[in-house]
Nucleic acid binder design. Structure first.
Lengths: 195, 195
DNA sequence: CGAATGACAGATTTCAATATCTGTCATTCG
DNA sequence: CGAATGACAGATATTGAAATCTGTCATTCG
């Protein structure tokens, strides 16, 4: 964190993540971030108008990491839609479960941030739902799925699997039934989608 | 609340509900309950060993009211299983939404209690899932549903509709999309269940 | 001149003293 | 005699004064 480098939004975001990791969401202050960077807090306010804006930017970053990883699966037109949807849902569940399990405190921290940044989360969910819509639409085009409206079906699939990606349920992802429940949910939903 | 009546568990539960309604979950104390009844708090402890036990009893009562209302629909063998399942899910959603909308503070209070009483909630969920299992099993018997294991399918249906009954989502039940989302979810799940 | 500072007002958080609560039990009451 | 009480120890919650934080802006620095 050499104070010699120019102060950029990017460096501030990195420092903010570090402070959040160390202090948690409640105790992470703008002053802490400035301290970590060796600058005055006034300088941070030059790049982010408010603390909320800074938190939102950090949250967006974190959410985007998930979206990008899944986009590859959703966009892979070479594989059949049913497998792709199964893989996509499994990848989402696995990624969330891993994050929650590996570093529960950091996951909890970001869950709190997500709760604050309703707008950013809504956008993220829209992105993910859009990915599912693409898979469903491909399936309809290929004649393997039935759907009046792929966007509506995708939304239903995404919401119905909420238990396996919504942080509110993170506590249940460790329990033994989780995998069986997930398999049952996916099987039922895919039966519902099949032409 | 005449102090002349004998002190029964039932009277204590009624007083506790009243105190919870007035003070909310954080500020409702055993001393408050005793005060409301015009007795010493020691007397309350004669009927409930701990404050947690008292809260659990109140929570169970509240949860049971929901279960009973739905049991009638689940058990009505005269109607076809698909309609029954649709009605059951709609009744659950409507009941929850009405409670949350009519008296948001009381609903929030009971949601907090439910969060404390994980055991009681688990039992309640088992009861509800059992009701769905009955409907699914009837459907399989009648040849209108397909399911390897009605209990597993019922669990999947119940969990997949969590967004429409889990208090964690109460904030979204008012939003305009809720009804369309619910309809889409139920349609997709029923397509998945049909033989 | 634009980037960074730090003093400032008002809002929020922390902390320690104080008050209240939980759960027990020897005693009282009817 | 069984039901109810209230004093008590330890745990928890409330309170208000002091410390810290947020966001602004006139001033300094390079």
């Amino acid at each position: 964190m050499a104070a010699t480098e120019t102060l950029t939004a990017e460096r501030i975001l990195q420092a903010t993540e570090e402070v959040l990791r160390r202090h948690g969401p409640a105790k992470a202050t703008v002053v802490d971030v400035a301290r970590a960077l060796g600058v005055s807090h006034g300088s941070v306010y030059r790049h982010f108008r408010t603390k909320a804006a800074l938190r939102e930017a950090v949250t967006k970053r974190w959410l985007d990491r998930t979206s990008e990883a899944l986009d590859g699966i959703a966009g892979d037109g070479s594989r059949d839609p049913e497998t792709r949807l199964r893989d996509w849902l499994a990848a989402l569940f696995t990624a969330k479960r891993r994050k929650a399990g590996d570093d529960p405190e950091l996951f909890a921290t970001y869950s709190v941030l997500a709760g604050e940044q309703v707008g950013a989360v809504a956008e993220h969910i829209d992105e993910l739902t859009e990915q599912v819509t693409r898979i469903v639409a491909d399936g309809v085009a290929a004649g393997v799925f039935h759907s009046e409206d792929p966007a509506v079906s995708a939304r239903a699939v995404f919401q119905a699997t909420g238990r396996f990606h919504d942080p509110a349920y993170a506590g249940e992802w460790d329990r033994g039934e989780a995998d069986a429940d997930f398999a049952a949910a996916v099987d039922l939903l895919l039966r519902g989608l099949r032409a």
